[in-house]
Design a protein around this nucleic acid. Structure first.
Lengths: 253, 253
DNA sequence: CGGGAGCTTGATTTGCTTCAATTAGAGTGG
DNA sequence: CCACTCTAATTGAAGCAAATCAAGCTCCCG
């Protein structure tokens, strides 16, 4: 472990690298933060020691103190349903933020766990709010970004509800590809950071169904899959799958 | 039509009456708004002319200018999926707010339509934000409330996903009862403001399934239903239904 | 008193789950 | 390095919940 402590500040350059596609940079740009302001933001972003696979970044019910951005690795957010079953609500890839759902409650409604050893940025919320009070417009921008982030998850959930197993998996694969693509990696060839069980849990399907789906997708020539290695062979076909079953005639009746 | 125009300000008393259970009052109380501040808020709340059944409060894609609170009546929020099907995302009962999902986009992502003739409060967002800038802490409180509202919908969606048809209907009926109850009406006896089709659309089920479910619930003695008139006869049983099928032993294994 | 949409009811089909083995990999210790 | 073990993943068969298909029914509303 090279890092002895979790409170070493990051350089501005690193913030930009980390948050190229995440909300933090959206926070700064439209507001027109000057050099000094960004330095102030710089000062409050903390680097945590790497989070080992299987360990929790925060747990449901604990006090909300910071929001986080993934540098490397991947995490899952989950809640425990009343019967004690884990329900995965989101996956978080490099460049993405998590912990936003805690803002309204003061405590985390979900647990975040590392799917693989991950490096995480911590942004103490009190300090972010304090800074926002001093920088005009940042508070408003913060509101917009938070609203957007939270709504985006809602949109995803919406997309998954009411869809067939096939559509759900296609949506997930395309989403993952898209998100990896934004981070400069291949959008068609990537390693799944999560197990089949996690995928099936997230999609609300039985693990057996997952397995059959992967096979069906491969037999159909849409993807190549070997363990966690996935290659999207026919993105257009996958996208077509996400639309409703019967090929729409692309023409109003 | 008694009201000639939609821009007549409401009295403070009316705000309280309207927003007893909605977010607006949550906005004021924790911040400790004084008489003067509440008067300022008073000034920006507008009353619209009654919205007739079937007409839209706002449509998806239109510019976001205000958030709304339902005084009387009921509305549904819906989006059009890519294949042109309506997807109902929420119902809005008296005392509840809508239009919050537009904050992050600047345009409304959904369409809001009156299920019955409804009376609506309009709160111009620009003015609310302007006021928030002058009143310390209101901006922050606004953030919390927005976050909470949006997350609440997400929670509901979460609750509906991955559940059997039976569980979904039980959840909806209990939710409606609870929400009517908060407004001082009976939590166990109410008129459904929406059609069976709307219910089935919202729950992601076929209308035929809805019909069978209502019958099954009545046969089981959980509810009495006649057209849109619903009476919850055994709330405890309905709550038990929402838990997972096999009675949990209420004990850690 | 029709007419018609909304609702109900029955029969059949389908997509997914569940149950039950089997296989494959990754980690472990000899 | 190789057997051993344990968990994750796959595969097959059977069962089931909900969708779909196809009529009827009922209550509005003119």
């Amino acid at each position: 472990m090279a890092d002895a402590d979790s409170s070493q500040p990051l350089r501005l350059q690193e913030i930009k690298a980390v948050c190229k596609t995440c909300s933090l940079i959206e926070l700064c740009l439209p507001v027109g933060l000057d050099r000094e302001d960004v330095d102030a933001l710089d000062g409050i972003v903390q680097r945590r020691r790497p989070l080992e696979k299987g360990s929790a970044l925060y747990r449901a019910g604990t006090r909300f103190a910071a929001v986080y951005a993934v540098r490397t690795g991947a995490l899952k957010s989950s809640v425990l349903s009343e019967d004690g079953e884990e329900q995965i609500t989101a996956f978080h890839l490099p460049g993405e933020m998590l912990g936003l759902d805690a803002i309204s409650f003061g405590t985390h409604p979900s647990t975040a766990m590392a799917l693989e050893t991950s490096s995480i940025c911590e942004i103490p919320f009190a300090e972010l709010e304090g800074l926002a009070e001093q920088v005009p417009g940042l508070q408003r921008q913060l509101l917009r970004v938070m609203s957007k982030e939270i709504f985006h998850e809602q949109e995803m959930l919406q997309a998954l509800a009411r869809r067939t197993a096939e559509q759900r998996l296609a949506i997930l694969l395309l989403s993952l590809g898209d998100r990896f693509g934004r981070r400069g990696m291949s959008p068609t060839r990537f390693l799944l950071p999560m197990s089949r069980q996690d995928v099936s849990n997230y999609l609300g399907l039985a693990p057996e169904t997952m397995s059959r789906l992967f096979k069906r997708f491969q037999d159909g020539g849409w993807i190549t899959v070997n363990r966690r290695e996935v290659r999207l062979e026919d993105v257009a076909a996958l996208k077509a799958l996400t639309n409703n079953r019967e090929m729409p005639l692309r023409r109003d009746p």
